[in-house]
Simulated scan of single mutants.
Amino acid sequence: MCNLSTVPKSAAEVAAHFGVANPIQSNAPEESYPGTPGMVVREQEGARVMQSMTWGFPLRLQGMKPDSKPKPVNNIADLTKGMWIGLARKPQWRCLIPLTGFAEAEGPKGAKTRTWFSVKDEPIFAWAGLWRVSDEWGPVYSGAMTDANEAVGPVHNRMPVLLHRDEYDQWLRGSFEDALAFQKRIFPAELIEMERTSEPWVKKKSAEPEGATLL
């Protein structure tokens, strides 16, 4: 499960990497948590555009109080199930999530630290995602997950669906079968770099990575 990621600071760098003609500065912080702003790249009228959205689809669980805050569903376990299949079938609801890294929690309970992963020789890379407009938070996005490769596996059994540069168009414009194929494949372990740190997994009460949801 991916509950913490870092996003590029420079809108111009993101625009250059993803082929966006008119970059806009995002209000996304450098570290992104579920329920907070993040940056996505999507297609609009045949061109790629950048947009700030909330990370996580709002979900109200049974028994929640009417005035309670929805839970952000920030990871997509299976594109063929639930609320995901209708969006995944339609290319206009697919997006690219720009990242510079993603983290997983490692260590004993109460003393977990952040282990960061990135793509070798790629300062910016893409996580395959879906987006929609919600009543609660406006535009929102979530990222597709897949089985971990040998590089991520020692820390977690799942990882984001990462895309190579030449696969961006296929995710954004391809068939439903293309999208499913990306979720089923194993990203090459030799392209992943890992950095274990002493950083506490939870740094702030206001932004706890562990409070996220996978559907």
Results as ranks from 00 to 15, higher is better:
Ala148Tyr: 03
Thr146Val: 08
Leu172Val: 09
Arg165Cys: 05
Ala148Lys: 05
Gly174Cys: 01
Leu180Met: 10
Ala179Trp: 03
Ala179Gly: 09
Asp166Ala: 14
Arg158Trp: 07
Val161Tyr: 10
Asp147Arg: 12
His156Pro: 12
Val155Cys: 02
Ala148Glu: 09
His164Asn: 13
Asn149Asp: 11
Thr146Gly: 03
Met159Ser: 14
Ala151Ile: 04
Glu177Arg: 08
Met159Phe: 13
Tyr168Lys: 00
Pro160Asn: 15
Val155His: 02
Thr146Cys: 14
Ala144Ile: 11
Arg158Gln: 03
Leu162Asp: 02
Gln170Tyr: 01
Asp166Tyr: 11
His156Gln: 14
Gln170Gly: 01
Pro154Met: 01
Glu150Gln: 11
Tyr168Ala: 02
Leu172Pro: 02
Arg165Asn: 13
Asn149Thr: 09
Ala179Thr: 08
Arg173Leu: 08
Asn157Cys: 06
Asp178Arg: 01
Ala144Val: 13
Val152Ile: 15
Trp171Val: 00
Asn157Thr: 05
Arg165Gln: 15
Asn157Tyr: 05
Arg165Asp: 14
Gly174Pro: 01
Arg173Tyr: 01
Asp166Val: 07
Ala148Pro: 05
Gln170Cys: 03
Gly174Thr: 01
Gln170Ala: 07
Asp147Ala: 14
Asp147Met: 13
Thr146Ser: 15
Glu177Thr: 07
Glu150Asn: 06
Val155Met: 02
Asp169Leu: 07
Leu180Phe: 05
Asp169Val: 04
Asp178Val: 04
Ala144Phe: 04
Leu163Asp: 12
Leu180Ala: 13
Leu162Ser: 10
Glu167Leu: 03
His156Ala: 14
Leu180Thr: 10
Asn157Val: 04
Gly153His: 12
Ser175Phe: 08
Glu167His: 03
Asn157Lys: 10
Thr146Arg: 11
Gly153Arg: 14
Phe176Arg: 02
Arg165Gly: 11
Met145Gln: 15
His164Lys: 13
Gln170Phe: 00
Tyr168Ser: 01
Asn157Ser: 10
Leu162Tyr: 07
Ala151Lys: 01
Leu162Lys: 06
Glu177Ala: 10
Tyr168Phe: 10
Met159Glu: 15
Ala151Met: 05
Pro154Thr: 03
Met145Gly: 05
Glu167Val: 00
Trp171Tyr: 10
Leu163Trp: 04
His164Phe: 12
Glu177Lys: 09
Gly153Pro: 00
Arg165Ala: 15
Asp169His: 04
Tyr168Pro: 02
Met145Trp: 06
Ala148Cys: 05
Pro154Gln: 00
Gln170Leu: 12
His156Phe: 12
Gly153Phe: 11
Arg173Cys: 05
Val155Arg: 03
Ser175Ile: 06
Met159Asn: 13
Glu177Trp: 00
Arg158Lys: 14
Arg158Thr: 12
Leu172Asp: 02
Ala148Asp: 09
Arg165Ile: 09
Ala148Val: 07
Arg173Asn: 11
Ala148Ser: 15
Leu162Asn: 13
Ser175Cys: 09
Met145Val: 04
Tyr168Gly: 00
Leu162Cys: 09
Ala151Asn: 02
Glu167Phe: 01
Val155Tyr: 09
Glu167Asn: 04
Phe176Ser: 03
His156Met: 11
Asp178Thr: 11
Met159Tyr: 13
Thr146Gln: 11
Ala179Pro: 02
Gln170Asp: 09
